[in-house]
């Protein structure tokens, strides 16, 4: 009986191996992409855009999107690590926000357990003030923070998210104590925007897209973006170029489950490399206004590790993570 079972098991393995070989060789992958969030959000939109680009360009035969919402991605990543181990056709969309969420939620599953594949897009953070604010430049905001960090109120997204981290980094770069910043989290972009427009807070911080139409309409003044110093333009000045040393982007990426083979990893990285270059993906980036920040494989793995270390330090300094 045991003998028979073993034999059956072996032949099943052999069949699986052959099947796996055939699919990867033909470059006709049947991918599954998990968005660890409810339909409609940024990660979901990324997953569905990938689906569109991968299938239309013929890189994958099919790409199925599943949603596993909850707790800033903590539930999705737990499912990826625990249930999809060794599955070379599974991908999960994630982003910078997940790095912070896993730390603040004290998640038992960590990003080290996943296999990093590629970073896809990035959005820089913008700092704005109401149009009638006396503050005109990033430097003036930095001076106000240095004088009394508690009196500068910030409106942005959820506590521990990229907006909060960027505000803390800004305070630190300004020479103020980041533990004393008066950051007020709002649920959803709309509420924060209303508070800034209504002059209830000193400054607002969020992805540039959230503020774009208000800046163009002259209702908000853009102090700058968290871009590298040499990437600033006249209508989108870099904060770093104004003398406040901060550089941060809200990026989105894909990771694979733990325990996949080197070949499987290579197949996924290759597929992403092809997708990033495809006309379909480039068209989507343009239409959605997403910045292309594609890097894959080991380069991305290094960035991911660096971002984790930096985020942990910032979150500890603002008291969201106990060291």
């Amino acid at each position: 009986m045991t003998q028979f079972r073993k034999g059956l098991w072996r032949s099943a393995l052999a069949v699986a191996a052959v099947a796996g070989f055939v699919t990867s060789a033909a470059a006709q992958m049947e991918l599954k992409i998990m968005a660890p969030a409810a339909p409609g959000g940024g990660w979901d939109q990324t997953a569905r855009s990938m689906q569109q680009a991968l299938t239309q360009s013929g890189i994958a035969k099919s790409a199925q999107v599943t949603n596993v919402p909850g707790a800033g991605g903590s539930i999705g990543i737990a499912q990826l690590v625990n249930n999809s181990k060794g599955d070379g056709n599974q991908l999960m969309v994630m982003g910078y926000v997940m790095v912070g969420a896993l730390l603040t939620n004290k998640s038992p599953v960590t990003l080290e357990q996943t296999t990093p594949i590629a970073r896809l897009t990035a959005e820089y953070e913008a700092i704005v003030v109401p149009a009638d604010s006396p503050i005109k430049t990033a430097k003036e905001l930095a001076d106000a923070l240095k004088a009394d960090p508690a009196k500068v109120t910030w409106a942005g997204g959820s506590a521990g998210g990229v907006d909060h981290i960027a505000a803390a980094l800004f305070a630190k770069a300004a020479g103020a104590d980041p533990t004393k910043i008066n950051y007020i989290p709002f649920s959803g972009g709309g509420e924060a925007l209303a508070a800034i427009l209504g002059g209830k807070v000193t400054a607002g911080i969020s992805g540039y897209g959230e503020f774009e139409s208000q800046i163009k309409a002259g209702k908000l003044r853009l102090l700058g973006l968290t871009t590298p110093a040499n990437q600033g333009t006249t209508d989108k000045p870099s904060i770093k170029a104004q003398g406040v040393d901060i550089e941060i982007a809200n990026w989105r990426a894909v990771v694979a489950p733990p325990g996949i083979s080197a070949d499987q990893k290579k197949a996924l990285v290759d597929a992403m490399d092809k997708m990033a270059k495809s006309a379909e993906w480039q068209a989507i980036l343009k239409q959605k206004g997403w910045e292309d920040s594609y890097v894959s494989g080991d380069v991305f793995a290094k960035i991911l590790a660096d971002e984790q270390a930096r985020t942990k330090e910032v979150l500890t300094s603002v008291g969201l993570v106990k060291s």
Binding site: A71, N105, S158, A159, H164, P185, L320
Partner: peptide
Amino acid sequence: IDILSGQS
């Protein structure tokens, strides 16, 4: 999760 402090 408390929206203001980020703690559960």
